[in-house]
């Protein structure tokens, strides 16, 4: 903490009592809390189209703000998450969703990781069984062990 900050800190401490006399509650920016929860949830899943790579929630771009407002109005009308997403997808395409839909084109995307896991698991198991049946055990030969310890010196 720099000296100026300490002074300011003390000044605020002194002011604290007097400040609390005229302190008033800050008003929330948006009045409908349940709508805001929905807006927040949706805007973290939707992409700001003009930004490098940001969700509507994170972006300060004007289009993102407009879209957020649009979502807020739809949410106020009581539209479900799915209905709002469908509305935006019908205008901007799947590009607007950070969570791609599951369809034939994206099946590899969604199933790929688990397919890889399955393949990896099977490969691992087969390999381990094969190794278990190995008769020769050749971890490090005496010569190798000597070389290793020599390299250590």
């Amino acid at each position: 903490m720099t000296l100026t900050r300490i002074i300011r800190f003390i000044a605020i401490l002194c002011l604290l009592q007097s400040v609390s006399l005229w302190a008033q509650e800050a008003q929330p920016l948006q009045t409908n809390a349940t709508v805001e929860v929905q807006v927040e949830r949706l805007s973290t899943q939707l992409r700001c189209l003009v930004c490098q790579n940001q969700t509507i929630a994170d972006s300060h771009a004007e289009l993102a703000q407009d879209l957020k407002q649009e979502i807020r109005e739809m949410a106020t009308k009581g539209m479900t998450d799915q209905a709002i997403i469908d509305y935006l997808v019908s205008r901007y395409g799947d590009f607007v969703r950070y969570k791609p839909p599951f369809n034939p084109a994206t099946s590899l995307l969604w199933l790929g990781p688990f397919g890889l896991l399955l393949a990896g698991g099977i490969g691992l198991f087969v390999m381990l069984r094969r190794r278990q049946k190995m008769t020769t055990d050749a971890p490090l030969s005496a010569d190798e062990a000597r070389k290793v310890s020599e390299l250590l010196k």
């Binding site: 189209l49 003009v50 004007e62 289009l63 407009d66 879209l67 649009e70 205008r91 901007y92 395409g93």
Partner: peptide, 13 residues
């Protein structure tokens, strides 16, 4: 003026 029709048309730039 407020860009609402733009959103309807999927205008992003």
């Amino acid at each position: 003026a407020d860009g609402r029709v733009g959103i309807d048309y999927g205008v992003y730039g």
